[in-house]
Design a protein around this nucleic acid. Structure first.
Lengths: 195, 195
DNA sequence: CGTCGCATTGATATCGCTCAAATCCGGTGG
DNA sequence: CCACCGGATTTGAGCGATATCAATGCGACG
C-alpha cells in the first residue's frame, strides 16, 4: 500500500500497454507508485538492445532517483496496463522531511532495493550461465528448495540474468536433464534441498 | 565528513591491511564510515573467486544494509590501512528518526548509491569489453571527454567491469590504437569529445 | 485465419577466459 | 647500494562458452 501520508499528494493516472510514462532525458518531476499493472524501466543500447534497469510491479515505487536527479535516466514503458500514483518530487521531499516515520520506512525501502541490485550486479559478474541461474535461485528463491515464481517470460528472466534467451533455454534444459532443477509451469526450484 | 549528529555515537577503530572488519554471516551490529583507507566488501564464489560487491573509500559509508538486515551479506576486508567510525545500528536508527535533516541526506545518499549500482548492473549486461569500457566512461566520466581518474589498478577496474585483467589490457590497448580513447597515467578519457 | 511474440532447437563464429611467461616497479632487508 | 620479492602490467596461444543467425512450433488474440 502506498503510504497514507503521500496519498493526498498523489494524482492517479492510467496507462495502456505500451505507453511511455516518461523518457530518458525528461525533467524528473515525480516519483511513481504502481497501484496495479507493470512498468519497465529500460534503456536502449546503440544497436537497439533493450536493457531492463528495473521492473516495477503492483505495490512498488519507481523513479525514486528523481528526488536526487534533474532528469530521468531511463525510459519507463508500461508492460501491463497500469494505474500509477504520481507524486510530485517537491511534495515527496516535503513529506520526507516532515514525517520521520515515513523517512525511516523510505530509507528501509531504499536499503532493500540496494541489496537487490547489488545481488544482481554480483550475479552478472559470475561466469557461466548455470552459475547465474544458481545465484538467482540462491538470492531470489525461498524455502529449502529455493523456489522462485517466475513473473514474466523466460526472455525476461534471460534479460535479468544478462544472457540471451537461447542460452538460458539451453542452460535450463541441461540443468533439468542433469536433475539439478525442476520446472513446473512458472515455478523454478532446486530438485534437492540446498544446504 | 561524517555527519556531526553521528559523531558522538561512533567509535573510532583502526585496522591494518588485510584485516577483516566483519564476515559474511556475522550479526549486523553497525554501520561504518571510512575516515581514511579503503575497505572492500566482497563475497567468494564456490571456487574462491573474489567478487567485489563494493569498495568503500575515505568519506563513504558502508554496510548501510545492516540497518535492515540481521546479518552481513559479505566480507569486509581492509585493502589499505584504515580508520573507521563504527556506528551501532540502534544509535544510527535513532538519529535517523530524530533528525529529519539527516534522514533526508541519508535518503539522498542511498538514492545515489542505487543509481551507481544500477549503472553497474546495466553495464554488466552489455556484450563486448569495449562496450563496457564506453559505458563506464559514459556513466562514471565527467566533462565533454568523459574523463575518469582511476583510483586503483587496472586489475581493479577489470573486476569492476566484470572482465579479466588480460581482456581489459587488450581492449584498452586496442581502443588506444584505434584512437578512441587516451590514457595518461591514471587518467582515462575519450579522444574525441562525446555528443 | 493470419499475425505476433514466446519457446525451442540447430549450426556457426567470435569473444573472452584460462594458462603461461616475460617485464616492470616499488618496497624491503641485507 | 644492491638483491630480492610480490604485485601489476603486458603479450601470446588455444579452447570453450556464449552470442548470433536461422528455422520451426505453438498459443493468444484480433
Amino acid at each position: 500500500m502506498i503510504e497514507r501520508c503521500l496519498q493526498e499528494e498523489a494524482r492517479l493516472r492510467e496507462f495502456l500497454k505500451g505507453a511511455q510514462v516518461f523518457r530518458q532525458g525528461d525533467v524528473a518531476r515525480a516519483v511513481f507508485y504502481v497501484v496495479d499493472g507493470e512498468v519497465q524501466l529500460c534503456r536502449f543500447g546503440r544497436r537497439g538492445e533493450r536493457i531492463i534497469v528495473h521492473r516495477a510491479r503492483a505495490g512498488e515505487y519507481f523513479a525514486e532517483a528523481s528526488l536526487e536527479s534533474k532528469r530521468y535516466h531511463c525510459d519507463a514503458i508500461v508492460m501491463k496496463p497500469a494505474r500509477l500514483l504520481e507524486v510530485p518530487a517537491a511534495r515527496f521531499r516535503y513529506v520526507l522531511r516532515s514525517d520521520p516515520d515515513f523517512a525511516q520506512r523510505w530509507s528501509a525501502l531504499l536499503s532493500r532495493q540496494l541489496q537487490i541490485v547489488r545481488a544482481r550486479a554480483e550475479r552478472m559478474s559470475l561466469v557461466g550461465a548455470a552459475e547465474r541461474v544458481r545465484h538467482y535461485l540462491a538470492t531470489a528463491g525461498s524455502g529449502p528448495r529455493l523456489e522462485v515464481e517466475l513473473r514474466g517470460s523466460i526472455k525476461d528472466l534471460a534479460a535479468e540474468l544478462g544472457l540471451t534467451h537461447e542460452t538460458l533455454y539451453r542452460t535450463l534444459a541441461r540443468m533439468q536433464k542433469s536433475g539439478e532443477i525442476e520446472r513446473e509451469g512458472s515455478r523454478l526450484r532446486r530438485r534437492r534441498a540446498s544446504v
